[in-house]
Design a binder for these strands. Sequence first.
DNA 1: TATGAATGAGCTTTCATTCAT
DNA 2: AATGAATGAAAGCTCATTCAT
Lengths: 203, 203, 203, 203
Amino acid sequence: MQQVRARARRDSILEAALRVFARAGYHLASVDAIAREANTSKGGVYFHFPSKETIFLLLLDRAASQLRARAEAAIAAERDPVAKVEAALWTVLDAFSAHRDLARLFLVEGAAAGQRIRERIDALHAEFTQLIRDQLDAAVAAGAIPPIDTALVAQAWFGALNEVVTGWAHADQPSSLPEAFWTLRRLFLRGVGIDPDFGVEPA
Amino acid sequence: MQQVRARARRDSILEAALRVFARAGYHLASVDAIAREANTSKGGVYFHFPSKETIFLLLLDRAASQLRARAEAAIAAERDPVAKVEAALWTVLDAFSAHRDLARLFLVEGAAAGQRIRERIDALHAEFTQLIRDQLDAAVAAGAIPPIDTALVAQAWFGALNEVVTGWAHADQPSSLPEAFWTLRRLFLRGVGIDPDFGVEPA
Amino acid sequence: MQQVRARARRDSILEAALRVFARAGYHLASVDAIAREANTSKGGVYFHFPSKETIFLLLLDRAASQLRARAEAAIAAERDPVAKVEAALWTVLDAFSAHRDLARLFLVEGAAAGQRIRERIDALHAEFTQLIRDQLDAAVAAGAIPPIDTALVAQAWFGALNEVVTGWAHADQPSSLPEAFWTLRRLFLRGVGIDPDFGVEPA
Amino acid sequence: MQQVRARARRDSILEAALRVFARAGYHLASVDAIAREANTSKGGVYFHFPSKETIFLLLLDRAASQLRARAEAAIAAERDPVAKVEAALWTVLDAFSAHRDLARLFLVEGAAAGQRIRERIDALHAEFTQLIRDQLDAAVAAGAIPPIDTALVAQAWFGALNEVVTGWAHADQPSSLPEAFWTLRRLFLRGVGIDPDFGVEPA
DNA sequence: TATGAATGAGCTTTCATTCAT
DNA sequence: AATGAATGAAAGCTCATTCAT
């Protein structure tokens, strides 16, 4: 029973930390502020977690696996290789735009937070790039897409998504993300040689 | 004569600051470390610059205008609209990859460094996106490219370039920059409806 | 229980700060020195108080209200208007001479300590001058003292008291406070037209 | 010839320092600001003076001896003992009110400026108190004033003058110093048993 | 478990003073 | 004589982390 309570406390601290990090960024988020947001004390935070960095890392991992799970589910729900590719992209774009602050936090902010965190952020980038790449590879293998350096394409796509979403977060560009999606979809698919409306284009 | 020395010192502090910022990020770079790297004292740094933030901003502006100048020169050297587009892209890619640490510093790291710096980083993103967009608009106007949301495309391309280059530090991909260029070029141009080998594709 | 300890610590920091301020003056009193004097650390001081200035202001207010309370009590204990005037003077003189270092600190030293503190010191001067003046006004209204510019008189008296007491630290004069009181009493009262021994003098 | 120039430079630095000290107070007056005000450089200041403190002390002494000279002249110009007393008072009040900023600087501000300066400020107080006291003693010896603790009276008068003038400097009290003089004169003289209009009062 | 007081290293910045030129 | 670059010892303040209760 006590363990249940402890677990709940731990989770509430994590939620609070997420909010504070998202609001203030890694450096400006003080442990005090996190404790206050979680309605506990600094000591309470340190009882559950060994350091501020650890909390950030935990949140990072949690966000990453949630996103991964969603993406994998979306991909699994499609049969067609190209549709799987699109599912991967759409899930990422969708998740980013639903949680702009987190996207900013983990994709941008986190990069200024010291060696350890940096490395994991890079790993996260790599992971999602890989996820997209896997779908591309499958599509290439299935002949749905002409051969191409899929690693590079995945990386480029990920970066494009990232920029568009984080740009959207604080400017007004683009004004509407859903509309942007259709343009990006065209841009991406035609880029790899698919006519988004009729399948593979003739050479 | 003293002025010459002072100018040299000032420059050496700027160089040192650039190295330290690139190595540690804005927050983790202490003025002490910058002074040490420049073989001077903290007071010396403050004699030449009013604040750490000012130094960062100065470096940022310097890098931005160098890149802008290069890009504009490269664009001006081409006549064909599509070639101008390619020139813009290539310059950015080239510059970024020659100074990956700076690209990381100014495009990623700096975004977590406080209001003033954030604003200028955003402005920098906007500026280079605009630079690319201008070429796209010209190409569309010239009929070299079918109509498209050029703002979004420029943003996506910028993000793609950014990600590919800053991702380089840790991955093994791409093995070579020129190769990557050809892939990206194809990806980008086909994305907007140009056959990179034969010009505009038939609808 | 912890709160008791915290309160005690807080108070001990205040006492320590008072000693250090009195010894060194506002500017020369470092927070480090205050912490050392209070057998705690700089961080400890800042845990209990938000700034050095706040501490000074707190001490200032505390001293002022203690003095005010004493003076008001002494005044209330008298019925005769002239006796009230004397009570105000005596209380101030007594308090100042019992805490010469504080008088010096708050009446003299503090005046060079920045806008906020200056304003409050001025207010303190004004307050005690006013306190004396009120008694003078009452005495004038009661016909115990001939009409006079009571504001100016109160100011002059306050300054005289201040100088006599703060000057003590270095001179040998006056040998004894009670003796000084009788001299000052005579000086002050005769100055406003009262024979200190027989009441109002004939015109 | 060069010595003449050096002397002029030295003096111009002193004047500049006086202005800066009066404007900003001892602590806030930086040597840089003094150099700038004197149209020279920090090094120039240090060529002529060994330290900031020395400069302040020099100015203090200079102001003190100027005031002393004026007071002594004014005193010497009178024959009557009581008139001499009044001359001393009036000179001090006059000087203070003509140079409010300096009065504030040397009588108030300076007190927060470290041991050495503090001691000299005290000496200055003592000196002027002594000057007034000497006239009082002479008046007592001449039978113009009944016996009294002249040291204490002089101190009280000095303090009263000081408070009235410095109060005048930043509040509006008293509204007119010349008017205040007549009130103070009455206050002071009657205090020591002199009817300011008809000489010594009957016991 | 949880609290919050306490620590101390670290930060940016200021400035009196020194010194090569 | 004079300059102004350079120094370095502070200063006030913040905050991740520790620890007695």
